[in-house]
Amino acid sequence: MDEKKTAILAEIPRLRRYARALLRDKDAADDLVQDSLERALTRLDNWRTGENPRRWLFTIMHHLFVDQMRKVSRRGGNATVPVEAAENLPSAATQQDSFAVRDILDALEAISPERRAAIMMVAVEGFSYAEAANILGIPAGTLMSRIARGREELRGLLDDAARRRTFRIVER
Protein backbone atom coordinates (compact mmCIF):
# COMPACT_ATOMS: atom_id res chain seq x y z
CA MET A 1 0.00 0.00 0.00
CA ASP A 2 1.35 3.40 -0.80
CA GLU A 3 2.50 5.93 1.72
CA LYS A 4 -0.48 8.20 1.35
CA LYS A 5 -2.96 5.48 2.11
CA THR A 6 -1.03 4.38 5.17
CA ALA A 7 -1.04 7.94 6.43
CA ILE A 8 -4.79 8.25 5.84
CA LEU A 9 -5.49 4.98 7.63
CA ALA A 10 -3.64 6.32 10.66
CA GLU A 11 -6.05 9.26 10.85
CA ILE A 12 -9.23 7.18 10.97
CA PRO A 13 -9.41 7.01 14.79
CA ARG A 14 -9.21 10.80 15.09
CA LEU A 15 -11.72 11.37 12.33
CA ARG A 16 -14.09 8.98 14.07
CA ARG A 17 -13.64 10.75 17.38
CA TYR A 18 -14.40 14.14 15.92
CA ALA A 19 -17.36 12.81 13.92
CA ARG A 20 -18.76 11.18 17.05
CA ALA A 21 -18.64 14.48 18.85
CA LEU A 22 -20.38 16.19 15.96
CA LEU A 23 -23.09 13.60 15.45
CA ARG A 24 -23.25 11.48 18.60
CA ASP A 25 -24.93 8.59 16.80
CA LYS A 26 -22.18 6.07 16.08
CA ASP A 27 -23.43 4.92 12.70
CA ALA A 28 -24.13 8.41 11.50
CA ALA A 29 -20.65 9.45 12.61
CA ASP A 30 -19.00 6.54 10.81
CA ASP A 31 -21.05 7.34 7.72
CA LEU A 32 -19.60 10.84 7.81
CA VAL A 33 -16.09 9.43 8.13
CA GLN A 34 -16.72 7.02 5.29
CA ASP A 35 -17.97 9.80 3.03
CA SER A 36 -14.94 11.88 3.97
CA LEU A 37 -12.53 9.07 3.15
CA GLU A 38 -14.28 8.46 -0.12
CA ARG A 39 -13.99 12.09 -1.09
CA ALA A 40 -10.38 12.23 0.06
CA LEU A 41 -9.44 9.25 -2.08
CA THR A 42 -10.91 10.79 -5.19
CA ARG A 43 -8.84 13.90 -4.53
CA LEU A 44 -5.53 12.42 -3.50
CA ASP A 45 -3.76 14.80 -5.86
CA ASN A 46 -4.87 17.76 -3.76
CA TRP A 47 -2.75 16.50 -0.94
CA ARG A 48 0.94 17.25 -1.13
CA THR A 49 3.23 14.42 -0.20
CA GLY A 50 5.09 14.93 3.03
CA GLU A 51 2.32 17.00 4.51
CA ASN A 52 0.40 15.57 7.43
CA PRO A 53 -2.98 14.51 6.09
CA ARG A 54 -4.80 15.41 9.28
CA ARG A 55 -5.71 18.99 8.45
CA TRP A 56 -6.61 18.04 4.91
CA LEU A 57 -8.91 15.23 6.04
CA PHE A 58 -10.55 17.31 8.74
CA THR A 59 -11.24 20.04 6.20
CA ILE A 60 -12.91 17.54 3.90
CA MET A 61 -14.99 16.19 6.74
CA HIS A 62 -15.97 19.65 7.87
CA HIS A 63 -17.29 20.52 4.43
CA LEU A 64 -19.37 17.37 4.31
CA PHE A 65 -20.70 18.04 7.78
CA VAL A 66 -21.73 21.56 6.80
CA ASP A 67 -23.50 20.26 3.67
CA GLN A 68 -25.32 17.77 5.78
CA MET A 69 -26.47 20.37 8.28
CA ARG A 70 -27.71 22.60 5.50
CA LYS A 71 -29.79 19.80 4.13
CA VAL A 72 -31.20 19.08 7.52
CA SER A 73 -32.11 22.68 8.19
CA ARG A 74 -33.68 23.06 4.75
CA ARG A 75 -35.89 20.20 5.59
CA GLY A 76 -36.84 21.89 8.83
CA GLY A 77 -38.74 19.82 11.33
CA ASN A 78 -38.70 16.84 9.07
CA ALA A 79 -35.03 16.29 9.52
CA THR A 80 -33.89 12.75 9.20
CA VAL A 81 -33.12 10.74 12.25
CA PRO A 82 -30.97 7.67 12.14
CA VAL A 83 -32.94 4.54 12.81
CA GLU A 84 -30.54 3.61 15.52
CA ALA A 85 -31.08 6.86 17.32
CA ALA A 86 -34.82 6.65 16.91
CA GLU A 87 -35.16 3.14 18.17
CA ASN A 88 -32.71 2.90 21.00
CA LEU A 89 -32.66 6.09 22.88
CA PRO A 90 -30.82 5.90 25.12
CA SER A 91 -28.60 3.47 23.32
CA ALA A 92 -27.09 0.50 25.06
CA ALA A 93 -23.77 2.26 25.23
CA THR A 94 -25.39 5.36 26.64
CA GLN A 95 -27.07 3.41 29.37
CA GLN A 96 -23.73 2.20 30.57
CA ASP A 97 -22.35 5.68 30.53
CA SER A 98 -22.12 7.39 33.82
CA PHE A 99 -24.28 10.39 34.47
CA ALA A 100 -21.27 12.59 34.00
CA VAL A 101 -20.58 11.25 30.55
CA ARG A 102 -24.18 11.49 29.52
CA ASP A 103 -24.39 15.06 30.78
CA ILE A 104 -21.43 16.00 28.61
CA LEU A 105 -22.88 14.30 25.55
CA ASP A 106 -26.29 15.87 26.09
CA ALA A 107 -24.83 19.31 26.59
CA LEU A 108 -22.61 18.99 23.55
CA GLU A 109 -25.57 17.94 21.45
CA ALA A 110 -27.61 20.88 22.70
CA ILE A 111 -25.22 23.62 21.65
CA SER A 112 -25.02 24.76 18.05
CA PRO A 113 -22.98 22.61 15.67
CA GLU A 114 -20.71 25.59 14.92
CA ARG A 115 -19.79 26.01 18.57
CA ARG A 116 -19.51 22.27 19.06
CA ALA A 117 -17.09 22.00 16.16
CA ALA A 118 -14.98 24.93 17.36
CA ILE A 119 -14.64 23.58 20.89
CA MET A 120 -13.86 20.05 19.80
CA MET A 121 -11.27 21.23 17.32
CA VAL A 122 -9.15 22.99 19.87
CA ALA A 123 -10.02 21.33 23.17
CA VAL A 124 -10.03 17.71 22.06
CA GLU A 125 -8.40 17.48 18.66
CA GLY A 126 -5.63 19.79 19.75
CA PHE A 127 -5.52 22.07 16.73
CA SER A 128 -4.16 25.57 17.18
CA TYR A 129 -6.55 28.47 16.69
CA ALA A 130 -4.95 29.17 13.33
CA GLU A 131 -5.31 25.57 12.18
CA ALA A 132 -8.87 25.23 13.45
CA ALA A 133 -9.94 28.52 11.84
CA ASN A 134 -8.39 27.36 8.61
CA ILE A 135 -10.12 23.99 8.69
CA LEU A 136 -13.47 25.52 9.58
CA GLY A 137 -13.01 28.26 7.01
CA ILE A 138 -13.68 31.11 9.42
CA PRO A 139 -11.63 34.07 10.71
CA ALA A 140 -9.72 33.45 13.93
CA GLY A 141 -11.87 36.03 15.72
CA THR A 142 -15.02 34.13 14.83
CA LEU A 143 -13.43 30.91 16.02
CA MET A 144 -12.53 32.53 19.33
CA SER A 145 -16.00 33.86 19.93
CA ARG A 146 -17.51 30.48 19.10
CA ILE A 147 -15.19 28.84 21.58
CA ALA A 148 -15.89 31.41 24.28
CA ARG A 149 -19.66 31.37 23.85
CA GLY A 150 -19.73 27.64 23.39
CA ARG A 151 -17.86 27.05 26.61
CA GLU A 152 -20.18 29.34 28.55
CA GLU A 153 -23.19 27.61 27.08
CA LEU A 154 -21.79 24.16 27.75
CA ARG A 155 -21.03 25.08 31.35
CA GLY A 156 -24.54 26.46 31.82
CA LEU A 157 -26.06 23.24 30.51
CA LEU A 158 -23.81 21.12 32.72
CA ASP A 159 -24.78 23.23 35.74
CA ASP A 160 -28.46 22.73 34.90
CA ALA A 161 -27.98 19.00 34.56
CA ALA A 162 -26.17 18.81 37.88
CA ARG A 163 -28.93 20.83 39.53
CA ARG A 164 -31.64 18.58 38.17
CA ARG A 165 -29.78 15.58 39.45
CA THR A 166 -29.43 17.12 42.88
CA PHE A 167 -33.15 17.76 43.02
CA ARG A 168 -33.83 14.20 42.12
CA ILE A 169 -31.60 12.94 44.87
CA VAL A 170 -33.15 15.30 47.38
CA GLU A 171 -36.65 14.24 46.38
CA ARG A 172 -35.86 10.65 47.17
Binding site: K5, I8, L9, I12, P13, R14, R16, R17, R20, A21, D30, V33, Q34, L37, E38, L41, V101, I104, L105, L108, I119, M120, A123, V124
Partner: peptide, 21 residues
Protein backbone atom coordinates in the same frame (compact mmCIF):
# COMPACT_ATOMS: atom_id res chain seq x y z
CA UNK B 1 -14.57 16.38 27.03
CA UNK B 2 -11.25 14.71 26.29
CA UNK B 3 -12.06 11.84 28.62
CA UNK B 4 -15.50 11.24 27.14
CA UNK B 5 -14.09 10.85 23.66
CA UNK B 6 -10.81 9.15 24.53
CA UNK B 7 -12.38 5.74 24.13
CA UNK B 8 -13.15 6.28 20.47
CA UNK B 9 -9.46 6.38 19.65
CA UNK B 10 -9.01 2.90 21.05
CA UNK B 11 -11.90 1.36 19.12
CA UNK B 12 -10.78 -0.68 16.15
CA UNK B 13 -11.82 1.11 12.97
CA UNK B 14 -14.79 -0.54 11.26
CA UNK B 15 -13.83 -2.53 8.20
CA UNK B 16 -15.97 -0.47 5.92
CA UNK B 17 -13.73 2.49 6.73
CA UNK B 18 -10.39 0.76 6.37
CA UNK B 19 -11.54 -0.95 3.20
CA UNK B 20 -12.53 2.38 1.77
CA UNK B 21 -8.88 3.37 2.01
Amino acid sequence: LREVFAGVLKEPAPERLTEMV
